[in-house]
Design a protein around this nucleic acid. Structure first.
Lengths: 117, 117
DNA sequence: CAGCATCCTCAGTGATACTG
DNA sequence: CAGTATCACTGAGGATGCTG
């Protein structure tokens, strides 16, 4: 029933934009590792650098800026010498957890599916 | 309480791989538009080409191959002249719908959040 | 310590023309 | 119709060295 309904591709495109926003925010090689690293603890720049294998300072800096712009991560500067900077996942950032879990669960099943040929 | 629990970054990395698999499968400029186009209807190559603005044949072909490799899409060739090829979303492909919806819902809220500054 | 500036490489994508 | 072949371009990301 209702097979005659026409699915407007334009309407679909409107739905697509937020999906692509979300994908873009998680896209790139380092966003997820950084978010995971900040999921449980506040970390400093050098902590993240050590904890995330092979990331360069340049990329860490750039990705943290992106995440900060999207309000997923908060940057706090302390007036010490040399300066200390702490990165925290915001409460809003934690709202991504559900999405990430959904991705993870599907990915898990996908691994099984593909491995079993 | 339980603040003293140490969160093993190695354990986290293991969790991360399937998440990144899922992200990779949806990554790129055209995967989502193609999946959306096939969500409700079987389509032929030229249908998809028309329906997805600005996609080139080259990319359409490549992305369809990727999706087929991941068993999200099925390719059926009909022995007509010239040949006819149909692309269908598999049942398995539909299992992505929940994930995509999760992304979409978060993306929706994110738009509001960012727009409201 | 927490980055930035510079230069470089390459995978992803686009443009165009061609084919079974 | 349903692609493939070829070339060209761009931007993500890497390497290295420098700085407040």
């Amino acid at each position: 029933m209702k097979k005659h309904i026409k699915h407007d591709p334009q309407a679909c495109s409107k739905k697509m934009l937020p999906i692509q926003d979300a994908l873009e925010i998680l896209s790139g090689k380092w966003k997820l590792p950084i978010l995971v690293a900040l999921m449980f603890d506040v970390k400093r720049f050098s902590d993240l650098s050590k904890e995330i294998p092979r990331i360069t300072d340049r990329m860490l800096s750039k990705e943290l800026k992106d995440l900060e712009m999207n309000k997923l991560v908060k940057r706090t500067v302390y007036d010490t010498f040399p300066v200390t900077v702490e990165y925290t996942m915001t409460e809003y950032g934690r709202s991504l957890k559900k999405v990430i879990e959904a991705l993870g669960e599907w990915g898990e099943k996908h691994r099984e599916k593909i491995m079993s040929e």
